[in-house]
């Protein structure tokens, strides 16, 4: 992410976190898809889903970001949304479940603070922190988040 210029970000909510991913990494936004379990895979992997004939591995957002189970807290994220993200330099596509997509915003690169520790979230997953209407959001390092899951 360059410091200068405008960055387009997709904002979404996972549990209590407001997160963002670079819009150019977002392939598509889909409703929650029913995954097929992959035996042996870690719990953070919900399974594999069918995206118009292609098989995509689905990562459970709340588990990856250590948020409470949405099905447990009374409905907010029960339907949910799937964000298809490109990882590994666009070579692979992963599904990432979020509670809801909030907005697509353009922000000035310099308005983002590079990697910053936030309480309750693994600092290696944070690329930068931004602010939107008094609310902090975390720009996720999607590669750091998702690539280790796939490396088999």
């Amino acid at each position: 992410m360059s410091d200068a210029g405008v960055v387009r970000l997709l904002l979404f909510r996972v549990g209590r976190l407001l997160c963002a991913a670079e819009a150019e990494r977002v392939r598509e936004i889909l409703p929650r898809l029913e995954p097929t379990r992959i035996p042996g895979a870690p719990p953070v992997v919900a399974g594999v889903v069918n995206v118009r004939g292609s098989l995509v591995t689905l990562v459970e957002g709340w588990r990856a970001l250590r948020q409470p189970d949405p099905s447990g807290d009374g409905g907010a994220g029960v339907s949910g949304t799937t964000v298809l993200l490109e990882v590994g330099g666009g070579k692979k596509v992963l599904g990432f479940t979020v509670d809801e997509v909030v907005d697509l915003v353009s922000v000035a690169g310099e308005s983002l603070d590079r990697r910053q520790a936030l309480p309750g979230i693994d600092p290696t997953l944070v690329r930068a922190v931004g602010r939107r209407a008094d609310q902090l959001f975390v720009v996720l390092d999607t590669d750091a988040l998702l690539t280790p899951i796939l490396s088999s």
Binding site: G40, A41, P42, V48, P148
Partner: peptide, 19 residues
Amino acid sequence: VKGFDAPQGTLPVFSGATI
């Protein structure tokens, strides 16, 4: 037969997936 990205830890008994 389609390939799928087997995540870490996947049991080594799958040769692929289908729809």
